[in-house]
């Protein structure tokens, strides 16, 4: 029998190929990310706290009980406040610093661009665990920081307890500024050099080029990085978990550590933990909506 490749056959084969290609990845994604996210929201409205889902203690819908509990918890506001400190350091610290470094390197104001870029970005790639414990030791009473301070001020006594968030914020600035430098570098390189040259020939100084050529061209990127920094700050977890664990006395805790404590430390309270993570997701989705809005409004000028 001669093989006839009809249109219907090709269509069918195409459809089969499509699903064979797409389905494995999609199922993995649904199982690991999409379903758990929805599940987390559902759990936050129930009384389920571990054990068998069916046949065990009956699971009740409790409405917004856990959210009410959450918004009445002093710990929640303390964690949120620390998150906001991190937001502040990210937006007003990492971004300007990252931009400054990128700008200096991009404009060729120093030689050895590769060297500086490589070294300043280095902290970002190292395991958070290593960074966290390293800085914990560095700032500890037995560490290098009190010793360094004593070079300038003999008899200096350092206690981590006085302002526990300051070392944390410092390390966040130290670790991630390089990332913003890289992002700005990549986008600065997209600016047409001819425009800058033309401005220089017309007599514009370094500051004027920055003010009238480069910053307007980057306005979209600056907005996007700002939102990135905000949502990244709301999620921050690893570093603080390793460095302080939220202590002393929860004074360096953030929302994600609050959630982790409720779920995995001591007696678990999964519904409350899920309520916390749902609040975090809602905040971060609001921010993403804001990005889209900001992109439309400011990004169009590029």
């Amino acid at each position: 029998m001669a093989k006839v490749n009809t249109m219907a056959d090709t269509k069918r084969e195409q459809r089969r190929a499509y699903w064979a290609l797409v389905l494995p990845g999609f199922l993995l994604y649904i199982a690991v990310m999409a379903f758990p996210t929805i599940f987390s929201v559902v759990l936050s409205l129930t009384s389920y706290n571990g054990g068998k889902l069916f046949g065990g203690k009956p699971v009740e819908m409790v409405g917004l009980k856990w959210y009410v509990r959450l918004f009445g918890d002093e710990y929640f506001y303390r964690a949120l406040k620390n998150n906001l400190w991190i937001v502040l350091v990210s937006v007003l610290g990492q971004i300007p610093l990252g931009f400054f470094l990128a700008y200096v390197l991009y404009r060729g104001l120093v030689r050895g661009k590769d060297f500086f870029q490589t070294m300043i970005y280095l902290p970002t790639v190292i395991s958070t665990v290593v960074i966290g414990i390293l800085w914990k030791s560095f700032f500890a009473p037995h560490g290098a920081f009190p010793e360094l301070m004593r070079i300038f001020r003999p008899g200096y006594e350092y206690t981590m307890g006085s302002h526990p968030m300051i070392p944390v914020l410092f390390v966040i600035l130290w670790m991630y500024s390089g990332m913003y430098m890289i992002i700005f570098m990549a986008n600065l390189q997209k600016i047409d050099n001819a425009v800058i040259e033309a401005a220089r020939i017309d007599g514009a100084g370094e500051m004027q080029v920055l003010r009238y050529v480069i910053l307007p061209a980057l306005s979209g990127v600056i907005v996007v990085t700002a939102i990135l920094a905000i949502s990244g700050s709301l999620k921050s977890f690893d570093l603080i978990y390793v460095m302080t664990g939220g202590g002393p006395a929860n004074r360096t805790s953030v929302l994600s550590i609050y959630m982790f404590d409720k779920a995995f430390k001591g007696a678990p309270n999964y519904p409350l933990a899920n309520a916390i993570s749902t609040v975090m997701v809602i905040i971060s989705f609001l921010l993403i909506g804001l990005t889209k809005f900001a992109e439309k409004k400011f990004g169009g000028r590029e």
Binding site: A34, S40, L43, F237, S256, Y270, T278, M280, S284
Partner: peptide, 10 residues
């Protein structure tokens, strides 16, 4: 846009 923290417990 989903984050690790929001799926950790589930």
């Amino acid at each position: 846009l989903l984050t690790l923290q929001s799926i950790m417990v589930p």
